[in-house]
Design a protein around this nucleic acid. Structure first.
Lengths: 141, 141
DNA sequence: ATTGAATAGTACGAAAATCGCAGTATTTGG
DNA sequence: CCAAATACTGCGATTTTCGTACTATTCAAT
């Protein structure tokens, strides 16, 4: 029962949102990572010792695509592969020191982005906004 | 002056947001469009008679990339190119009937998406939420 | 009027990325 | 103990991006 007008306004806001708050790949690093590799790196940062299949399932892409992605990240020295003793078919992924630095860079950029987003809101509005968006995403279906 | 905790919560919410509210490419159409072509189509829908350069500037990609994109869209019969009398170097883009149908499909999917997002909020919260996000994006830098 | 610079777009091709198919290594279950 | 399942990777076809170089047209300044 939201009005058409509300939906249109929200749509326009989201468009602007997506376009404006696009975090520029942390300059200063060597070559920028493509979107998938960035996602892979961030996932591994949050799930050390995970396997390629975990990443693939989470990101919704085929296993082979993640295999390529991790290949690139290993070649760039951002992540490391190793065989866990427990299951020697598997591969466990973890960040290298350089990878951790890179992931931290992204995290910092994200925080800065969120800070800029919240800047125009008052303290009370911020609280409300965060509460609402949390409500939206935590609503099952 | 948002707290670290607020920023972390917002970040988590955005991640979930981006992952959950990904509009599945309107099934039923023939082959799905890739992301860029979708963006191009939508831009042309909103800016009939625009040129490739306009699209490129808006989307932040090189001109040649848009040239490829419009090529694909023309081949699929979704947009049409023609030479305006006024400036015969230029190319003007517009949707074909099929393209319009496709764009309308996307628009409908978007609306449905927004409806689902707003569903968990009360009428008053919706109003507030939209007002806040509008405030955020209309804030110049 | 002329012509040199600027502008709009495209052709082409190299480099990169995605992902299906098939293959290897290991584990599990009956 | 062996067939099926699981975790991944090698390979290669297809698609996409985008830089360089080109054509066509317009503009601007003499």
């Amino acid at each position: 029962m939201p009005t058409d007008d509300q939906l249109a306004t929200l749509g326009a806001a989201f468009d602007a949102f997506a376009r404006r708050y696009k975090l520029a790949d942390a300059l200063g690093s060597d070559k920028p990572l493509n979107e998938l590799d960035k996602q892979t790196l961030l996932y591994v940062a949050e799930h050390s010792e995970c396997g390629p299949t975990d990443v693939a399932r989470f990101l919704g892409v085929p296993n082979t695509t993640i295999s390529s992605s991790t290949d690139r990240l290993v070649k760039r020295g951002l992540i490391e592969r190793h065989r866990p003793e427990a299951d020697r078919r598997a591969v466990a992924l973890r960040l290298s020191a350089a990878g951790k630095a890179r992931a931290d860079g992204f995290a910092a950029a994200h925080l800065e982005l969120y800070r800029r987003m919240l800047a125009p809101l008052s303290a009370e509005e911020r609280t409300r906004f965060i509460a609402m968006i949390t409500k939206i995403v935590s609503h099952a279906d």
